[in-house]
């Protein structure tokens, strides 16, 4: 094989996935724009929106709470152990608070939502597609994006910041439990240190991240569900792709938002 053909094969091998990736980015962007368009144009489906609020928000509370509680506790132990290397054990309340609120709260809630909600949305919509329920919606004069996508994305945009707020509080509480019961901190001092240390922008950035991650999680579930291939394998692939895409996008968005909010 000549050098020229080897180079061409290598370029083609690199170019093909890049083109596929760019096409996916384009399709997701168009899907997002279409969803935004339907959000502001009637008809609206309040019943479906309420169901999505409960499904995405309320029913995610246990998993979010448990994740945050254990993470806050582990964080307190790590900071105490690490801080003791240079006599900085006293900063446990402050670092747990800022770590949970700025980073771990939103990211962990986002990833938990990607695991629980994105997969469920993708599987549900993909199944609806392969069983012709999406076609049935169209023949019943109901736009599938309006009926299936808009309520879920809106509900995620509203409820995930609230879940992040709950996660932040429970995570700090986890750190408080470990700090006071295991590490010997005074309860009142621990709480006082936490409250005094946190600033408005720490909390605001946490909630903004929550909204962004919620939107990403719901949008990915809907996009991959609506574009699912046929059969059980198609549903499986759509579900897997939606969770992977949501998790990666959440982590990427977290970096970009952190850079935008806190870069010095």
């Amino acid at each position: 094989m000549s050098l020229q053909s080897l180079t061409a094969a290598a370029l083609a091998g690199t170019g093909r996935p890049v083109l596929i990736w760019l096409a996916s980015v384009g399709r997701i962007t168009l899907f997002f724009a279409r969803t935004l368009g339907h959000m502001v144009r009637p008809p609206f489906y309040p019943r479906e929106f309420l169901q999505s609020l409960i499904g995405i928000g309320y029913l995610s509370l246990p998993v979010v709470g448990l994740t945050a509680l254990f993470t806050g506790g582990a964080l307190a132990l790590q900071i105490f152990a690490g801080g003791s290397r240079f006599n900085a054990e006293a900063v446990v309340p402050q670092i747990v608070a800022i770590g949970m609120v700025r980073e771990l709260g939103p990211v962990l809630v986002g990833l938990m939502i990607a695991a629980r909600v994105t997969s469920s949305i993708a599987a549900e919509i993909a199944t609806m597609k392969v069983t012709e329920q999406i076609d049935a919606l169209v023949t019943l004069s109901t736009h599938p994006v309006k009926y299936l996508v808009v309520p879920r994305v809106l509900a995620a945009l509203i409820t995930v910041p609230l879940l992040v707020a709950v996660g932040d509080i429970i995570g700090i509480f986890g750190g408080y439990l470990v700090g006071t019961l295991r590490l010997g901190f005074n309860p009142a001092t621990y709480l006082q240190s936490t409250v005094n240390f946190l600033e408005f922008w720490d909390i605001a950035s946490s909630l903004i991240k929550g909204a962004a991650f919620g939107g990403i999680a719901a949008l990915m579930g809907c996009f991959y569900g609506m574009n699912s291939a046929r059969g059980a394998q198609g549903v499986g692939r759509a579900t897997k792709a939606s969770v992977v895409a949501a998790a990666v996008l959440i982590l990427a968005a977290n970096f970009l938002l952190t850079q935008a909010f806190f870069s010095v």
Partner: peptide, 21 residues
């Protein structure tokens, strides 16, 4: 008008295509 057009049709799908929820 697509809605008016579709309002003239009814359809029975092969698998029923009933909404599970």
């Amino acid at each position: 008008d697509r809605d008016a057009f579709l309002a003239r049709f009814g359809m029975l799908f092969q698998g029923g295509a009933l909404f599970d929820s």
